[in-house]
């Protein structure tokens, strides 16, 4: 596991992690946002238990998505502002490795937020949302979202509107994925047997794979100058 590819990938991840450990601004911002979002939703939807059970997967995913968008903008903006991207492109390293490094960093931060959100919603909404399948769907959903997010954020940070354009460009493309994730999550929270919502998990998996291939291929073009 010590090929040039993995070396580049891990050094990018290490760089992002070190920067994050020193400044603590990325995960901190994302978590604060997630907390506020969940609180506001719980005020806004002062619902009875049954209605909550239906609404909670929406709350969960909306929070994760917007938290992730905050993180993506920050992570790609950082590369651009400090001229890191130019330096990396000058170095003779493979583009897919850069993509893998940035993507895994984003995935890690979003997963941290998503995992911390589960106990938080369990407490605030008084519904147990932690289960094995829940973790699987959470992982698959966040994976696909971060794949497309890393590609599209790389494009949007190079536009005039920058931060503002990312959600507009990313959300519609990620929608099929989010639909499958929300549907599966709702089913899990309502204790529906796997046979009835398994299709959603399969769809999620297929979309993840397709997006991964497309985004890795497209990334090379997005960063070429």
């Amino acid at each position: 596991m010590n090929t040039p590819f993995t070396r580049v990938m891990f050094s990018i991840i290490r760089k992002d992690l070190l920067a994050e450990l020193r400044s603590r601004e990325l995960v901190g911002t994302m978590l604060m946002f997630a907390l506020l979002s969940v609180l506001i939703f719980s005020f806004a939807l002062e619902l009875d238990r049954v209605a909550r059970q239906e609404a909670i997967s929406g709350v969960l995913w909306v929070t994760i998505i917007f938290g992730s968008i905050l993180g993506l903008n920050r992570s790609m903006g950082m590369e651009r502002d400090n001229g890191n991207m130019d330096a990396m492109l000058l170095a003779p390293i493979s583009r897919p490795a850069i993509f893998a490094g940035k993507f895994l960093g984003n995935l890690l931060f979003t997963l941290v937020v998503g995992l911390l959100l589960l106990p938080l919603t369990t407490i605030l909404y008084n519904i147990s949302v932690i289960s094995g399948w829940m973790l699987v769907i959470l992982g698959l959903g966040i994976f696909g979202f971060c794949v497309t997010g890393t590609l599209i954020a790389t494009m949007t940070v190079q536009t005039r509107a920058r931060e503002a354009l990312l959600p507009i460009a990313l959300l519609p493309v990620a929608l099929p994925l989010l639909l499958a994730a929300v549907k599966a999550t709702t089913a899990i929270l309502n204790n529906v047997p796997f046979a009835d919502w398994g299709t959603w998990a399969q769809i999620l998996l297929v979309i993840d794979v397709v997006y991964l291939v497309v985004c890795v291929l497209a990334f090379e073009y997005v960063i070429e100058d």
Binding site: M155, R160, L165, V222
Partner: peptide, 29 residues
């Protein structure tokens, strides 16, 4: 969103490049 992305990029070569990629991705919908 494709048109908005397009209008947001000043450099013509970059605009064409990003627009092409986004146009391909968007076909998924």
């Amino acid at each position: 969103a494709y048109l908005m992305l397009r209008n947001g990029i000043d450099n013509p070569e970059r605009r064409r490049l990003f627009a092409s990629i986004y146009g391909i991705l968007a076909f998924g919908t």
